[in-house]
Amino acid sequence: MTWYVLNLGDAMLAGDAVDRIQSLFEQWPSRPAGAAVFMRHESEGRLHCELRVYLPPAAAPLAQQLGATPCAPPDPGDLGVLAGEPAALKPLRRD
């Protein structure tokens, strides 16, 4: 199943985009129970990190609305929950 990613750029400047995503998530009329939008700060060796948002397959309508691009499932290490249920991380982690 296809995941989606949206790079919000410099994490220090991503506040407005984060607020927009959280608002759209809360207004999502057909949001599945337990749904979540995930995030991770990634630096890839650069001085400043970028904030990347990952949307699971169930969030495809929201991903399309945000202009996210298809990607492989993210490594669950260091993922956080940007919007939704924190318990949504549990099935992603294989601890």
Rank of each mutant, 00 (worst) to 15 (best):
L24P: 01
S23A: 15
F25Q: 02
P57I: 00
M39V: 05
T69A: 14
A36L: 10
R31I: 01
A63S: 10
A63Q: 11
A87L: 13
E50L: 00
S30D: 15
D19N: 14
E85N: 14
C49K: 07
R93H: 10
P57D: 15
R46G: 02
Q27Y: 04
G80N: 07
Q64H: 15
V37S: 09
C49M: 05
A33E: 15
L55F: 05
D75V: 01
D19L: 13
G34R: 06
E50T: 05
G67D: 07
A63G: 10
R93G: 09
V53D: 08
Q64C: 06
W28K: 01
A36W: 10
A72L: 11
P91V: 07
G77E: 15
E85F: 01
A58H: 00
E26Y: 01
D78T: 00
G45K: 12
P32C: 08
E85C: 08
R20V: 11
A60L: 04
C49Q: 12
Q65N: 03
S30L: 11
R31L: 07
H41D: 10
L66S: 06
S30V: 12
G80M: 12
A83T: 05
D75M: 01
L47F: 14
Q22H: 06
F38G: 01
A35G: 09
V37Q: 10
S30G: 02
G80L: 12
L82N: 09
I21R: 03
L47S: 12
F38E: 01
S23L: 13
P73S: 11
L79M: 08
A68Y: 02
L66W: 08
L51Q: 10
R31D: 01
D95H: 12
Q22E: 15
A72E: 15
Q27K: 13
P74Q: 07
R40A: 09
A33F: 06
W28C: 06
P32I: 04
R31F: 00
H41V: 03
A87T: 13
R52N: 13
V81M: 06
Q64R: 15
Q27D: 15
E50I: 00
D95L: 11
L55M: 14
A33H: 10
D75R: 06
G77A: 14
G80E: 14
M39N: 12
L79G: 07
E42A: 09
C49Y: 05
V37I: 14
P73V: 02
P56K: 02
A36R: 11
P56C: 03
L79T: 07
F25V: 02
A58R: 00
P57T: 06
E44Y: 14
R52M: 11
P86G: 03
P91D: 08
A63P: 11
S23V: 04
R94D: 13
Q27S: 14
T69I: 06
L82W: 07
G45D: 05
L92M: 11
S23R: 15
E26W: 00
L55V: 04
S23C: 08
Q64T: 11
A33V: 13
L66A: 06
R94W: 07
D78V: 00
Q22N: 08
P29A: 10
P86Y: 04
P76W: 02
P91I: 09
A60V: 02
A87H: 08
R31H: 01
P29C: 08
E44K: 11
E42C: 03
K90G: 00
L92G: 01
